[in-house]
Measured scan of single mutants.
Amino acid sequence: YFQGQLNAMAHQIQEMFPQVPYHLVLQDLQLTRSVEITTDNILEGRI
Rank of each mutant, 00 (worst) to 15 (best):
E44D: 08
V25A: 05
V25L: 09
H11I: 12
A10R: 02
M9R: 05
Q12S: 09
S34C: 05
I13E: 00
Y22I: 15
V25P: 00
Q12H: 10
D28Q: 02
T32L: 03
M9S: 04
H23N: 09
Q12G: 06
V35Y: 07
F17E: 00
H23L: 09
H23I: 09
E15Y: 09
Q30T: 10
P18F: 02
Q3A: 09
L24A: 10
V25T: 03
L26K: 03
E44V: 08
Y22E: 13
R46F: 06
P18L: 04
I37L: 12
Q14I: 12
Q19T: 11
L6V: 07
Q14E: 05
A10G: 04
I37N: 06
M16Q: 10
V20T: 05
V35A: 08
M9L: 11
S34N: 07
Y1V: 12
T32M: 02
N7G: 09
Q19V: 05
V25D: 02
I37M: 11
V35G: 04
L29N: 00
G45Q: 05
Q19D: 14
D40C: 15
L26Y: 10
Q3Y: 04
D40P: 01
M9W: 14
Q5V: 13
L31W: 09
F17I: 02
F17S: 00
Y22N: 12
S34G: 01
F2T: 15
Q19H: 14
Q27H: 10
G4W: 10
T32S: 06
Q19N: 14
L31Q: 10
D28E: 03
S34I: 05
M16D: 05
I13Y: 01
I37V: 11
L31Y: 10
S34Y: 03
H11L: 13
Q30R: 10
A8E: 13
T32A: 01
E36D: 10
P21F: 06
F2I: 13
M9F: 08
T38F: 02
M9K: 05
H11N: 09
G45L: 05
L43W: 05
L26M: 09
R46W: 07
N7W: 12
V35F: 08
G45Y: 03
I42G: 01
A8R: 07
Q5T: 11
F17V: 01
Q30H: 11
Q3N: 10
D40T: 15
I13S: 00
P18E: 03
L24D: 13
G4S: 11
I37F: 06
A10K: 02
N7T: 12
